[in-house]
Design a protein around this nucleic acid. Sequence first.
DNA 1: GAGCTTGTTCGATGAAAGTCGAACATGGGT
DNA 2: ACCCATGTTCGACTTTCATCGAACAAGCTC
Lengths: 102, 102
Amino acid sequence: MELHEPELREVPVTAVLAALADDVRLQIVRALAEGGEYACGTFEFGVSKATRSHHLKVLREAGLTRTRVAGTSRYVRLRRDELDRLYPGLLHAVLAAPDRVA
Amino acid sequence: MELHEPELREVPVTAVLAALADDVRLQIVRALAEGGEYACGTFEFGVSKATRSHHLKVLREAGLTRTRVAGTSRYVRLRRDELDRLYPGLLHAVLAAPDRVA
DNA sequence: GAGCTTGTTCGATGAAAGTCGAACATGGGT
DNA sequence: ACCCATGTTCGACTTTCATCGAACAAGCTC
């Protein structure tokens, strides 16, 4: 299984922003920001596992997360250091943003 | 002419991010970040004026810009102070991000 | 007022994105 | 070996979005 995890420098800013511009993915990122690694199944945000898998792929290919394979599970974590280095302030600003339900 | 300019607090973060997650709009924001006010017609980024008008509307309704009407022209400016207050670091991070063409 | 300029709005169109169920792949566990 | 659990991939469907030309609105200038 090839896990495509791009260099952050090769990802257009707009792709990073687009990855964050979705409710489900933002919830995932918020959860990831809390701690270390989470199994994919951890994220139950009212979507099917197909959809969840899709969102995790988007995050991964936008350079936001890294995935470690262990058995049948995959463990996901935020690439926070790299993100902070390349986009200082961005992650903090997004995470600190108030939760708006609409 | 009613110009819909929402309170920044009422705009979901995802809407702000989505507004920034487009090449044309990001170019507009970068241009606006340079100086003060610009007439809409200033922005020639290879799109028709209908499309330009659309993007400016998206930015305005995401709370990113303010528009002043003067005759047949409209002058647009970034709501930088408000943005920095509500999302400290976000604008800087986005503007400082390297221009990636591919 | 006629004409020009500036900008918005109205369809229409084509592409991208979110969502799902079902099928598939893979690796335990018993 | 068989089953189960975890995820991914594959269509298919729907919604959203970027884009355009054309029509419209409003104001300036002569």
